[in-house]
Simulated scan of single mutants.
Amino acid sequence: MKVGLLRAVGVATAVYGAAVTAVPALLARPSGLVDAEGRTERATRTSLRPLAWRDAVSGLALAMAPEGPALRTAAYVRIAADFGDAVLLGVTLPGRDRKLAAVAVSVGWGALSVAGLLAGGRREVMTLPAAGPLQV
């Protein structure tokens, strides 16, 4: 596991999530979720804030979790959120280019967390009660 990479992804995600929570237009504009004048409707701002807060909190967990199972769990949560975003935004955003961009960004961030989990070459052995050794 590359702890530094996971921490960096966590910090970046936390900062971005906090910024979008405060200013939802940071996500709404590139996603095409604005009106003809480029304004973000109140309902859209309201809908984006919980998503952004989820990113802020899960990023903070990834940045601060102790190394080991807690950090791995935080990474799994971040990966699930990023790949879930890729699927949902890829299906629902307006316009093919915006869909492709959202999928690329979401998969890219998720892939960084996957790389952080898989990198390092050292495999840990976890022993489960009555189940014997399990390679993880």
Results as ranks from 00 to 15, higher is better:
residue 6 L to K: 08
residue 93 L to G: 02
residue 32 G to V: 01
residue 13 T to Y: 06
residue 90 G to S: 04
residue 11 V to R: 14
residue 135 Q to N: 12
residue 40 T to H: 03
residue 24 P to W: 01
residue 82 D to P: 09
residue 97 D to K: 12
residue 131 A to H: 05
residue 91 V to N: 05
residue 17 G to S: 13
residue 14 A to F: 06
residue 92 T to I: 07
residue 114 V to R: 03
residue 119 A to F: 13
residue 129 P to H: 07
residue 69 P to W: 12
residue 117 L to I: 11
residue 10 G to E: 08
residue 87 V to P: 01
residue 20 V to P: 00
residue 132 G to F: 09
residue 102 A to R: 00
residue 12 A to R: 13
residue 128 L to W: 04
residue 93 L to E: 00
residue 136 V to M: 13
residue 48 L to F: 02
residue 39 R to A: 10
residue 110 G to C: 03
residue 99 K to Q: 10
residue 50 P to F: 03
residue 127 T to K: 04
residue 94 P to R: 06
residue 46 T to S: 05
residue 39 R to E: 07
residue 89 L to A: 04
residue 130 A to C: 12
residue 83 F to L: 01
residue 31 S to F: 02
residue 136 V to I: 14
residue 11 V to T: 12
residue 126 M to H: 08
residue 112 L to D: 03
residue 89 L to R: 01
residue 110 G to S: 05
residue 41 E to H: 11
residue 23 V to C: 08
residue 92 T to N: 08
residue 67 E to F: 13
residue 51 L to W: 03
residue 120 G to N: 12
residue 40 T to I: 02
residue 106 S to A: 15
residue 134 L to S: 07
residue 23 V to E: 10
residue 65 A to C: 08
residue 125 V to S: 11
residue 8 A to G: 08
residue 5 L to W: 11
residue 95 G to H: 07
residue 56 A to D: 04
residue 102 A to I: 03
residue 70 A to L: 15
residue 71 L to H: 05
residue 65 A to W: 02
residue 118 L to N: 09
residue 61 A to C: 14
residue 53 W to F: 15
residue 106 S to M: 02
residue 27 L to R: 00
residue 60 L to H: 05
residue 3 V to K: 14
residue 133 P to S: 13
residue 5 L to F: 12
residue 54 R to N: 06
residue 13 T to Q: 14
residue 70 A to R: 15
residue 14 A to M: 15
residue 71 L to E: 05
residue 28 A to C: 06
residue 63 A to Y: 06
residue 74 A to T: 06
residue 52 A to Q: 01
residue 105 V to D: 00
residue 27 L to N: 00
residue 64 M to W: 08
residue 38 G to Q: 06
residue 131 A to K: 04
residue 83 F to N: 02
residue 98 R to F: 01
residue 106 S to L: 02
residue 130 A to I: 09
residue 56 A to S: 11
residue 19 A to I: 09
residue 2 K to S: 14
residue 54 R to M: 12
residue 57 V to F: 09
residue 134 L to C: 11
residue 114 V to T: 08
residue 103 V to K: 00
residue 91 V to Y: 05
residue 97 D to R: 14
residue 26 L to I: 07
residue 17 G to L: 13
residue 16 Y to I: 15
residue 128 L to V: 15
residue 103 V to G: 00
residue 81 A to C: 12
residue 88 L to C: 10
residue 99 K to R: 15
residue 76 Y to L: 15
residue 5 L to T: 10
residue 77 V to C: 08
residue 17 G to K: 05
